[in-house]
């Protein structure tokens, strides 16, 4: 009973913070709607690149032209559902000393940041995901229907969590490096590359694919997209959809504890006025 009450309380907190974040960011919805230009324009470039690449062949690394285009459309849409800037936000709070205000609040900053992400992404779903999905559907004729709704939904939810934990872990580095913008950007660039945003991970050399399998990045975007398509392969390893979603869940739990440990180590380093 106590556990149930605690869950309800936590949910109320999440709802309240998410709602405030939603309202706050709704004031800048035109900024978010830049995605309506950037998403389709970037996709248009990819469309012509891959049209040219596939002009002499029908299959490349197991992808047909339609599949590779669907892959890029899905990567774009998954990004709208899972992205956040927990890293930037935590860095900024630590650097400016504003973080002190979170240390005296009766909730963890990680949960607060996660709740903020929920609110921000609800807004993203309305102003980014739905319009761009419709553009892909009607303008580019990319019919994006998941192979299995349940596993796809679950995998995207886990990708949502994984993205948050990765970014939050990057943000925690700010406890050690106050002016850590460079480090943060470096990891973000690697993250972008290794989660399959630039090119499907099966295009990497086999050895690198095998390493990528054990890194957290692929679980944030590549896995949800492959689950959406309905098949998973990386580094010669092929898994059924329930299996890879199970592995993804384990990876998320591991990242949860990694952020917890990093937090415990990093928070001790924090210095601010009165601390």
């Amino acid at each position: 009973m106590r556990l149930f009450k605690s869950i309800i309380k936590q949910f109320r907190v999440l709802k309240a913070v998410a709602f405030v974040t939603y309202k706050e960011w709704a004031a800048y919805r035109s900024h978010m709607m830049v995605s309506l230009i950037v998403g389709p324009v970037s996709f248009l470039v990819q469309y012509f690149i891959w049209q040219a690449v596939y002009s002499n062949q029908t299959q490349l690394n197991g992808f047909t032209l339609d599949q590779v285009l669907s892959y890029y459309a899905l990567i774009t849409l998954t990004h709208y559902l899972t992205m956040d800037f927990a890293d930037w936000n935590l860095h900024m709070l630590i650097r400016t000393g504003q973080f002190i205000t979170y240390m005296i609040r009766p909730m963890s900053h990680r949960y607060f940041a996660f709740s903020q992400k929920v609110g921000h992404r609800v807004l993203g779903f309305i102003y980014e995901f739905i319009p761009v999905y419709l553009m892909f559907f009607f303008v580019f004729n990319i019919k994006l229907i998941p192979a299995n709704f349940f596993w796809c939904g679950l995998s995207i939810a886990l990708g949502f969590l994984m993205t948050f934990f990765i970014n939050y872990a990057i943000g925690i580095i700010g406890f050690w490096i106050i002016r850590g913008e460079g480090v943060r950007r470096m990891i973000m660039t690697i993250d972008r590359l290794f989660r399959g945003v630039l090119i499907p991970l099966v295009f990497f050399p086999d050895m690198i694919q095998k390493i990528l399998f054990f890194l957290p990045f692929q679980f944030a975007s590549y896995v949800p997209v492959r689950v959406f398509i309905g098949s998973y392969i990386l580094g010669g390893m092929s898994f059924s959809i329930p299996e890879i979603v199970g592995i993804q869940a384990i990876a998320v739990v591991i990242m949860f504890f990694i952020t917890k440990i990093l937090w415990l180590l990093g928070a001790r380093k924090f210095t601010g006025v009165g601390v």
Binding site: A52, L60, L198, I199
Partner: peptide, 17 residues
């Protein structure tokens, strides 16, 4: 990243005609 992307395409035996 963009030259790398191009490299990966050519590395996989494909390319721009």
């Amino acid at each position: 990243t963009i030259p790398f992307f191009t490299f990966m395409i050519y590395q996989n035996g494909a390319g721009f005609p």
